[in-house]
Amino acid sequence: MDDVPDPRRQRRRVRVGAVVVLLLVALACAVLVAALGDHGTAANVVRTPPTSAAGEPGAAASGSGGTILVHILGAVERPGLYELAEGDRAIDAVAAAGGFLDTADQRQLNLARFVVDGEQIAVPAIGEIPDAVPGVPGSAAGGKVNINTADEAALDTLPRVGPAMAARIIAYRETNGRFTTIEDLMNVTGVGDKTFEGLRDLVTV
């Protein structure tokens, strides 16, 4: 009779085995959920490393590796002042501010353009008429050109400022830092009294 299996003992073994299997399954699910916790949803904007002209990630276009301050406001999650790396683009500024709100009119921004130190980026809401010219770096309220943020194309729209003069203005601010007053523009080679008088009412800092 010792060789006859006890039915009650067999049932207990089956129940214990089932409990062990359920615990192992629950543990596996918990590990899987933890592993996917930060990757299950997509953010509004993904910050990517700046790329060089050769397309190598992590190499800033300016090559200096410094930091800049950018003020972003409007239809973003966390408007404010953010420290970015030189060579970052407008999309990096939006990402630092938590991404766009659902009401943001993203079409009015050129997210691929480079940002500069001291720049202010206003993200308009859908249907809002921005003070600045959409998609034009350096445009400001009233249609004035911000000489601290304008690119060569925007500077070239000013009277008496051709491509060569625009390049000198950009080179000056890269070497000496942002213009603190519009009068500082006269420190740029080629900007004399007559040229400055023609620009006085068209530029801002």
Rank of each mutant, 00 (worst) to 15 (best):
V94G: 01
R107L: 07
T175K: 09
G99C: 11
R200L: 04
T189A: 14
G138V: 07
N176F: 03
R9P: 05
R113K: 12
T41H: 14
V16F: 13
R200T: 08
A43S: 10
T48M: 04
N146C: 12
P163N: 08
G138H: 02
N44Q: 15
A122R: 00
Q106N: 01
Q106S: 00
D151R: 07
V123M: 10
V123I: 15
G65P: 01
V123W: 04
G63W: 02
D3T: 03
A75F: 06
V203I: 15
V136S: 07
D92Q: 10
L69P: 00
F100S: 02
R107F: 01
Y82C: 13
R178I: 11
A43V: 05
P159C: 13
Q120F: 03
R178L: 07
P137E: 10
A42M: 02
R12H: 06
L199H: 00
Q108T: 11
R113P: 01
V188F: 11
N148L: 01
R78L: 03
A153S: 00
L22W: 08
G37M: 12
A26Y: 06
T41Y: 09
H39M: 08
Q10T: 04
L185D: 05
D88G: 06
A167W: 13
I129Y: 13
I129V: 11
A141V: 15
V191E: 03
G142N: 07
A150M: 06
E174K: 11
D156T: 09
R160F: 14
A59E: 13
D102A: 10
I147K: 04
V145F: 02
A34N: 09
A154D: 00
Y172H: 15
C29S: 11
D38M: 11
I91F: 04
I72A: 06
D131K: 10
T195K: 15
L22I: 14
D151L: 11
D184E: 12
Q106E: 06
A28V: 14
V45E: 05
G192L: 04
R12Q: 11
L84T: 04
R160P: 01
L185K: 00
D193L: 07
S62A: 08
A95F: 11
R78H: 14
A35D: 10
S139A: 13
A140S: 14
R47M: 08
V76W: 02
G142T: 05
G74H: 09
D6V: 06
G80K: 13
I126N: 04
L185N: 02
V33N: 07
R200K: 12
R178S: 09
A59P: 03
V188Q: 11
V20W: 13
Y172C: 01
M165K: 02
G17F: 02
P124L: 06
R12W: 05
R160E: 15
A104S: 04
R200M: 05
R113W: 12
Q10A: 11
V161A: 05
V188M: 10
V123N: 08
N176W: 04
A60P: 15
V20Y: 12
V31E: 10
V20G: 12
Q10S: 04
I129W: 08
A125L: 08
P5D: 06
V19N: 04
P49L: 01
V25A: 15
D105R: 05
V203K: 02
G177W: 07
G98L: 09
D92R: 05
Q108D: 11
G55S: 08
C29K: 08
I169W: 00
V76E: 03
G192T: 05
A35T: 07
R160M: 15
